[in-house]
Design a protein around this nucleic acid. Structure first.
Lengths: 204, 204
DNA sequence: GGGGCTTTGTGAATCCGTGAACAAGGGCGG
DNA sequence: CCGCCCTTGTTCACGGATTCACAAAGCCCC
């Protein structure tokens, strides 16, 4: 489920706030969902709360971490050092949540050797070596749409099995490779769609 | 539906490729969905294809554009001029698809007056004026989580009715305001979740 | 002009996620 | 030690989305 990471985030906040136990109701409130849904989600992976009390925050966090595969950090490779790529490379939110961008590559040789935060940009051709050296399973694509499929092919060939794709293209990959698409313009279009229903001829 | 923007994107490519008509099967293939789904989606807003031939690309694009509210450009305000904010401000993909970031603000006064592409960063306090002046309906939040709720409140007060939120926080807004959350770390966690099921103790 | 091929549009069956309600069960006060 | 209260875990019903399968219908070729 896509809600587990949200619970995880909320629980981290609660733990930081010193709270030791949480009810499904409170968790639901903070995560912006229904209480029954929370209980059903949590019951699905054998995490048992105590009736009359709630869930123990530490225990629940440990279970979630195990379930989400966050017991260790994940190394990621970032392809594309343009505007978006640069921002992603410097983005603090990844490392805070157990993900480390350990390599950045670009086709543009003029970018090779430049620095992005603590990282040095390597050339595209190095993908195979970098993935092998760092034991990378996750690739992040931040290149123009026309180049995305080729990058995906190269990542898959290198052994990457999960791809986070920011390019507005449907990628063709083997079934065993998981792809998640994040198309920023699509998100805005969905908002615009609802705006349109609200007031058919509003400008802005 | 969240698939309409994807159809729109695919159709733009087809149109650019000079194709004048498309079958539901081909469209489904390119959009990565089921053919029956495509037909049902399209039939929902009275766009009629021709049996035995398919849909006319131009006509379908026009219908989609109308349905998605893309008959005119949408002005957006971006809050937060950090790493992510900068990338978003310069991101070409928005303008290509009918969205224009016309204002950027930040609380940090040292950033006010600096340039991001063609835009000049204004101060936070200007939100009300900027939203009114430009007739803005859509706000983009790219600030740290601790500041997100306050920014959201200010945007809502200024009259913004749709928010694209990049901060990892659940925002509390009035019912009539639409929020879409994009949490990049959550996307990676979902991938890690599937990685974890694949091979319980893989490192990387 | 008519038959056959292709493709749409839709009706029906199914599956999944959601939400409400309720019984089971543990803690706490007396 | 007992009963009350609170919260979980689960069952049930429902609505929406998905998929299959097929009839209606346009186009092309003979």
């Amino acid at each position: 489920m896509a809600r587990l990471p949200v619970y995880h985030r909320v629980l981290l906040d609660l733990q930081a706030g010193g709270q030791s136990t949480v009810s499904s109701e409170q968790l639901a409130e903070l995560a912006g969902v229904n209480a029954a849904k929370v209980r059903k989600d949590l019951s699905h992976f054998g995490s048992y709360g105590t009736r009359g009390v709630g869930y123990e925050v530490d225990q629940l966090l440990a279970d979630l971490r195990r379930e989400l595969g966050l017991t260790h950090d994940w190394n990621c490779i970032l392809v594309g050092a343009g505007n978006l790529g640069s921002a992603l490379a410097k983005f603090a939110g990844f490392s805070e949540r157990g993900f480390a961008v350990v390599a950045v590559v670009d086709v543009d040789r003029s970018k090779v050797g430049t620095h992005l935060g603590a990282l040095t940009v390597s050339h595209d051709e190095e993908i195979g070596r970098l993935v092998a050296d760092h034991g990378i399973a996750i690739g992040i694509i931040a290149v123009p749409p026309a180049a995305a499929q080729e990058v995906a092919d190269r990542l898959v060939a290198a052994g990457v099995t999960s791809i986070l794709n920011f390019a507005p293209t449907v990628l063709d990959v083997p079934d065993e490779v998981k792809v998640r698409d994040v198309d920023l313009a699509v998100e805005l279009q969905i908002l615009a769609f609802h705006e349109g229903r609200r007031e058919p001829r509003r400008t802005g």
